[in-house]
Simulated scan of single mutants.
Amino acid sequence: MKHETPKIEAERREKVGTVYAQRLRKAGRLPAIIYGHKKDPVAVSIDEREILTHLHHGTHVLDIAVKGGGSETVLVKELQFGYLGDNVMHVDFARVDLEEEVTVLVNLAFSGTPKAAAQSGAILTHDMTSLEVVCRVNAIPGEIPVDLSIMGEGTVITVAEIELPTGVRAAVEPDAVVSHISFVKKEEEAVGEEAEVAPDGSEPEVITEAKAEGDDKKDDKKKASKD
Score class of each variant (00 low, 15 high):
residue 130 S to C: 08
residue 134 V to E: 15
residue 145 P to H: 02
residue 130 S to F: 05
residue 131 L to R: 08
residue 152 G to A: 14
residue 158 T to V: 05
residue 150 I to K: 15
residue 164 L to V: 07
residue 163 E to H: 13
residue 154 G to M: 06
residue 144 I to R: 11
residue 159 V to S: 13
residue 154 G to Y: 09
residue 166 T to H: 13
residue 144 I to K: 06
residue 169 R to P: 07
residue 158 T to G: 06
residue 141 P to C: 04
residue 143 E to T: 06
residue 153 E to L: 10
residue 172 V to L: 12
residue 172 V to E: 07
residue 140 I to Q: 05
residue 171 A to P: 08
residue 137 V to P: 14
residue 145 P to N: 00
residue 132 E to I: 01
residue 138 N to K: 14
residue 137 V to E: 11
residue 147 D to E: 07
residue 155 T to D: 14
residue 171 A to M: 07
residue 140 I to G: 07
residue 153 E to F: 06
residue 171 A to V: 03
residue 142 G to Y: 03
residue 134 V to A: 10
residue 164 L to Y: 12
residue 171 A to L: 04
residue 139 A to F: 01
residue 150 I to P: 09
residue 151 M to A: 05
residue 148 L to N: 02
residue 161 E to K: 09
residue 149 S to F: 00
residue 137 V to S: 09
residue 162 I to V: 13
residue 130 S to V: 00
residue 136 R to S: 02
residue 138 N to A: 09
residue 149 S to M: 01
residue 138 N to F: 07
residue 158 T to N: 15
residue 152 G to P: 03
residue 142 G to W: 05
residue 168 V to F: 04
residue 138 N to H: 11
residue 171 A to D: 10
residue 156 V to Y: 10
residue 145 P to I: 00
residue 147 D to M: 00
residue 145 P to A: 01
residue 167 G to I: 04
residue 140 I to R: 10
residue 136 R to N: 06
residue 137 V to A: 11
residue 153 E to R: 08
residue 154 G to E: 13
residue 154 G to Q: 11
residue 140 I to E: 10
residue 131 L to W: 03
residue 157 I to P: 02
residue 167 G to K: 07
residue 130 S to W: 01
residue 133 V to P: 06
residue 137 V to Q: 05
residue 153 E to H: 11
residue 162 I to G: 12
residue 169 R to G: 02
residue 146 V to M: 06
residue 166 T to I: 06
residue 160 A to I: 03
residue 133 V to D: 08
residue 170 A to C: 04
residue 157 I to C: 02
residue 146 V to T: 02
residue 147 D to G: 00
residue 144 I to C: 09
residue 155 T to R: 10
residue 153 E to A: 12
residue 135 C to Y: 02
residue 160 A to D: 15
residue 163 E to F: 07
residue 171 A to S: 13
residue 136 R to G: 07
residue 162 I to C: 13
residue 132 E to T: 10
residue 133 V to L: 07
residue 172 V to I: 14
residue 157 I to S: 01
residue 142 G to K: 07
residue 154 G to D: 15
residue 171 A to F: 06
residue 148 L to P: 01
residue 171 A to W: 02
residue 160 A to R: 15
residue 131 L to C: 05
residue 156 V to Q: 14
residue 162 I to W: 14
residue 136 R to F: 00
residue 160 A to E: 15
residue 145 P to M: 00
residue 165 P to G: 04
residue 148 L to S: 03
residue 159 V to W: 12
residue 150 I to R: 14
residue 130 S to N: 04
residue 166 T to S: 14
residue 150 I to V: 13
residue 141 P to E: 01
residue 165 P to N: 02
residue 168 V to T: 05
residue 150 I to A: 09
residue 142 G to A: 04
residue 165 P to M: 12
